[in-house]
Simulated scan of single mutants.
Amino acid sequence: MRLLRLVRVRSTSFFWARLRWVISVFLLLFAITSQAEYGVNMTPGVTDISQSVYSLHMIIFWICVVIGIVVFSVMFWSMFKYRKSQGAKPAQFHESTTVEIIWTLIPIIILVAMAVPATSTLKEMYDVSESDIDIKITGYQWKWQYEYINDDVSFFSNLSTPQEQINNEATKGEHYLLEVDEPLVIPINKKIRFLVTANDVIHSWWVPAFAVKKDAIPGFINEAWTKVNEPGIYRGQCAELCGKDHGFMPIVVKAVEEPEYQAWLAAKQEKAKAEALLASQVWSMEDLMAKGEEVYNTSCAACHQQNGMGIPPAFPGLKGSAIAIGPIEAHIDIVVNGKPGTAMQAFAAQLSDVDLAAVITYERNAWENNTGDTVSPQDIAKAKGN
């Protein structure tokens, strides 16, 4: 009986062990076949420097492959050839000068073989001299500001993926979370120097097709450059964990031919002049509300939500709040200047006077707030001290 019980226990253990093995294999096969997109390498990119980085990566990769093959081949051959069952006796030696020299020289040669192409590529990556266009990139939670330093053009680039897609209420688009309202536009075959910084927390400007990834750090300016060879639209993201909406901070770069770039630049400059004229006009409540809703959904809804309910306690609601229905001066002040020690940013430099007037008017009259107040661009200019 005792032997029978022992056999049963061992049979049961064997059964469960085999079942676990089958389940593990099934889960592994399921994981492999369920990959939506399977990639094992980096992109060669569309610039000369990105292709140099890719070539360097492949050189180092194949050096590592050769090292791995040699080391493991020798190890497995030694284990098989000189195994104890064949009567092999371990060699007894130490402090061999020859062995010491060999295993010192070989790694040095390998490292030099890696260092030569790596140094050449790094020197090229960090050479930002003789640029044709200088663009300052400033990271904000959670958008990018682009300033064409010598052309008097500046704008913000915000995520434009519809909120319905984010809330799983609509089918997600091809470029879900990688689309913006205002892409960065650059000409091809021109050296573009990027001056990268941040306004609030650490961000990172990353476009894989350019092999450009630079940290944006408040109070510091990091430099990078690119020279795109092919027209097209290239996408990236903030590569630093910069807050709760880190995944909603995409980058879109549109590389175009020189004539198209010059036409775009002239149109942006004309638009800036037109916006300056708009600030002197008288706006009706209806126009302010329409403009304000657009600005709110782009710049404010991420924190305060489209319905104005916010995400307390970090992001308070605006519906019926002391700010939105309280003294209008306090409302203007907090939107223009922000509130230190909180997530509320200062929007004085982020939005135009027209946009600020419109969004404050919208917040004071949306979601049944109905204060009847309107804010004019002149009120914003006065609050700024202009």
Score class of each variant (00 low, 15 high):
residue 5 R to M: 14
residue 15 F to I: 02
residue 16 W to C: 07
residue 17 A to W: 14
residue 25 V to I: 14
residue 30 F to Y: 10
residue 40 V to C: 11
residue 42 M to I: 15
residue 43 T to S: 15
residue 49 I to Q: 11
residue 58 M to H: 11
residue 61 F to T: 12
residue 73 S to H: 01
residue 74 V to C: 15
residue 76 F to S: 08
residue 77 W to R: 14
residue 77 W to Y: 15
residue 103 W to S: 12
residue 107 P to R: 00
residue 114 M to D: 02
residue 115 A to I: 05
residue 130 E to Q: 13
residue 133 I to L: 12
residue 134 D to T: 11
residue 141 Q to S: 04
residue 146 Y to N: 05
residue 154 S to I: 13
residue 157 S to N: 04
residue 166 I to W: 00
residue 176 Y to H: 09
residue 183 P to N: 09
residue 185 V to C: 00
residue 188 I to V: 13
residue 188 I to Q: 02
residue 191 K to N: 03
residue 193 R to W: 05
residue 206 W to F: 15
residue 210 F to V: 05
residue 210 F to P: 00
residue 211 A to E: 00
residue 224 A to D: 01
residue 232 G to A: 11
residue 241 L to I: 15
residue 242 C to T: 08
residue 244 K to C: 13
residue 245 D to T: 15
residue 255 A to F: 09
residue 265 L to V: 07
residue 267 A to H: 02
residue 273 K to V: 08
residue 274 A to D: 12
residue 279 A to D: 01
residue 281 Q to G: 09
residue 306 Q to N: 15
residue 312 P to Y: 09
residue 316 P to F: 01
residue 316 P to N: 06
residue 324 A to S: 03
residue 328 I to G: 01
residue 329 E to I: 09
residue 334 I to Q: 12
residue 335 V to L: 05
residue 337 N to G: 07
residue 339 K to T: 13
residue 339 K to L: 12
residue 340 P to G: 10
residue 342 T to C: 05
residue 342 T to A: 11
residue 351 L to I: 06
residue 354 V to D: 01
residue 354 V to F: 01
residue 362 Y to I: 05
residue 368 E to T: 13
residue 369 N to D: 04
residue 371 T to V: 12
residue 375 V to D: 00
residue 386 N to F: 04
